[in-house]
Simulated scan of single mutants.
Amino acid sequence: MNDNNTPRTELQARRERLVLDHFADETRQDFDAVLGTFPHPHYELIPSGEVHDGIADVRQYYADTRRAFPDQRHEIIQLRHADDSVVVEFWLLGTHRGPLKGLPPTGNSFRCRMNAFFIFEGDRLVCERVYFDTLTMLRQLLAGVPAEHVAALVGGLLGQPAATRAPEAAAA
């Protein structure tokens, strides 16, 4: 049964089981099993515009994120079914222990509410599309970092080089 007491279809039950296994395998860091939930792995991270497509690219994404957050895990809040997808609202948690796109480890933990759309064609998972508020995560990761360092660190995350001169000097 769904939360609204309507019975799930057989297809919804299969999709839900696959998504729950996918989440559990990610937390266990059994990435071969996670990759096995897709015929062709494909992630879209909407806030950053990143797309990770194919086994090698997705495997690198897993390696990079677990290097930064070795204890990354999920707490599922709600799971809903749509015509072509399973939508999961969850907390993502972790501790920043390794580099993240130029941001050195801060040792800070984060807890960020997210939504993931697991898009299906029939019972085949074709895409995981993730939405979250980057500022919520950054605010927690950068807590305690000296203010004079924050701009350079955020610029690195955004792929922008740190300014080498003060704005007043650049205008002269």
Score class of each variant (00 low, 15 high):
94 G>A: 07
35 L>E: 02
117 F>C: 09
121 E>D: 13
155 G>Y: 04
3 D>Q: 11
86 V>Y: 01
1 M>Y: 14
169 A>S: 06
109 S>N: 13
30 D>E: 05
47 P>A: 03
150 V>R: 06
105 P>D: 05
90 F>N: 04
71 D>W: 09
57 D>A: 14
90 F>I: 04
166 A>K: 00
102 G>Q: 09
40 H>I: 08
137 M>I: 14
43 Y>R: 11
136 T>A: 06
65 T>D: 02
93 L>V: 03
99 P>H: 09
23 F>Y: 12
134 T>D: 06
126 V>G: 08
159 G>F: 00
94 G>F: 13
8 R>P: 11
91 W>G: 00
71 D>I: 08
159 G>Q: 01
11 L>Q: 06
121 E>K: 08
159 G>M: 01
145 V>N: 09
84 D>L: 07
45 L>G: 03
133 D>H: 06
64 D>S: 08
41 P>F: 02
101 K>Q: 12
70 P>W: 05
54 G>Y: 15
32 D>H: 10
33 A>E: 13
150 V>E: 05
82 A>T: 09
146 P>N: 11
81 H>P: 02
56 A>F: 08
93 L>N: 06
154 V>D: 03
95 T>E: 11
4 N>L: 05
123 D>R: 02
15 R>E: 03
82 A>D: 11
71 D>L: 09
85 S>L: 12
37 T>V: 04
56 A>D: 15
21 D>P: 03
108 N>Q: 13
117 F>T: 11
6 T>K: 00
96 H>R: 06
53 D>Q: 11
146 P>W: 06
156 G>W: 01
134 T>A: 09
14 R>M: 00
140 Q>V: 02
69 F>K: 03
151 A>Q: 11
93 L>C: 02
22 H>R: 10
65 T>V: 07
13 A>N: 11
8 R>K: 14
130 V>N: 02
108 N>C: 12
41 P>A: 05
67 R>V: 02
35 L>Y: 02
152 A>P: 01
2 N>S: 15
79 L>V: 05
82 A>Y: 07
5 N>K: 06
103 L>Q: 09
43 Y>D: 09
64 D>T: 06
72 Q>P: 03
49 G>R: 12
117 F>P: 04
63 A>P: 04
104 P>R: 12
78 Q>R: 14
49 G>D: 12
29 Q>N: 07
74 H>L: 02
17 R>K: 15
139 R>K: 15
95 T>I: 10
13 A>V: 13
119 I>M: 05
31 F>E: 01
167 P>S: 08
36 G>V: 03
9 T>G: 07
48 S>I: 07
140 Q>A: 00
61 Y>F: 13
10 E>L: 13
161 P>G: 12
